Simulated scan of single mutants.
Amino acid sequence: MIKSMQRLTLAAAAALLSLAAHAVPDPYPNSGTQAPASSFVAPSSGQLRAYFTGLSGGFTNLLGVRINGVDGALGLDNHASAYGDSFLLGNVVAGDTLVFFIDVNAGTARYYSDPSLNADGVNHAWAAAYVGDAQVPAGINVAFEDLPGGGDFNYRDHSFVFQVTAVPEPAAWVLLLGGMAGLSAWRRRRD
């Protein structure tokens, strides 16, 4: 009886932990209404990484970013990516201008987070802060609308969280490796 109660308790705890581990970002709260435009600036220097958080659109979209006016690589296919999959968009320097975009159906259309770059003049992106979970770190959640003219304005067709992580300087690696070698030597002498 005690063992079955322990198993039940462990199963309940595991179920609760799995729920907490996957806290999807909140959806756009004003579906049907165009979202206000957002602009993005790299908050620090390092690697700009996007983490896939979901889709509900029928079109196939790839994510990209324009850093200081230069378009980068495309990735995170909204139909082939799983929640938490990540894609390195490139390296940025604090203060760089970031304009995210989706490439719809292999180049049929491209919609930017800056409405002035969109052929239809409509805002196709919505952004909000995200606290993070076990699979997606804290950052800014950006959700896109992939229909011309804004379509249904639900901003659920391709969403991701972006984050800039620092890249250690070579000198930091040398210090880290030197410290580990010193610790190893100290432990060998102690034994």
Rank of each mutant, 00 (worst) to 15 (best):
Q34M: 15
A119F: 13
D146Q: 06
V161K: 02
N105W: 13
Y111D: 07
Y112N: 14
Y155I: 04
G75I: 06
G72C: 09
G151Y: 09
A138Y: 04
L55E: 15
D26A: 15
F162V: 14
A128I: 07
A42E: 01
L63I: 14
F160S: 04
G151D: 10
S159E: 14
D71G: 01
G121C: 10
G64K: 01
F160H: 03
D120M: 11
A94D: 00
V92K: 09
V122C: 08
G46W: 11
D85P: 07
H124W: 02
D103T: 03
I140W: 03
I102N: 07
G32R: 11
I102P: 05
S39P: 01
F144A: 10
A106S: 15
L48P: 04
S159K: 06
T97L: 01
N91Q: 10
Y112D: 13
G54E: 11
A143L: 03
V24W: 09
S86A: 08
D77E: 12
H79F: 09
L147R: 10
F153K: 08
N141H: 13
T97D: 10
G149V: 06
G57E: 01
V131C: 00
A143H: 06
F144L: 13
Y111V: 09
G149T: 06
Q163F: 01
F52C: 02
R156V: 03
G132A: 04
T33M: 08
Y51P: 00
A20C: 05
V65Y: 09
D103K: 02
Y130E: 03
D114K: 07
A23D: 08
Y130S: 01
A166E: 14
V104S: 02
G151T: 10
G75W: 03
N141A: 12
A20E: 05
P36F: 07
L74G: 00
W126Y: 15
G139L: 02
G150Y: 02
P43E: 11
G58V: 09
Y111E: 08
F40Y: 14
V142H: 04
V136R: 02
F153G: 04
G57N: 05
D26M: 03
V24C: 01
V41M: 13
P148V: 09
V41H: 12
A134I: 04
R66P: 00
D120G: 10
V136C: 00
Y83E: 04
G151N: 10
D120H: 11
G58W: 07
N154S: 12
A119M: 08
F101G: 03
G54K: 12
S44T: 14
P29S: 12
L76K: 03
H79Q: 15
N78R: 08
S38W: 00
N154V: 04
L48D: 04
A42S: 14
N91L: 01
G69K: 01
P43I: 07
N141P: 00
T33H: 11
P115Y: 11
V164I: 15
S56H: 14
F144H: 07
L98T: 08
F40N: 03
P137H: 07
A42R: 03
F52D: 00
Y130H: 10
T33E: 13
D120Y: 11
G132C: 05
F40R: 05
A119P: 03
D77P: 04
Y155R: 02
V122G: 08
G32V: 10
F100R: 09
G46E: 13
N118F: 04
N61Y: 05
A125Y: 01
A129K: 05
T108Y: 12
S81G: 00
A80F: 00
V65G: 09
N61D: 15
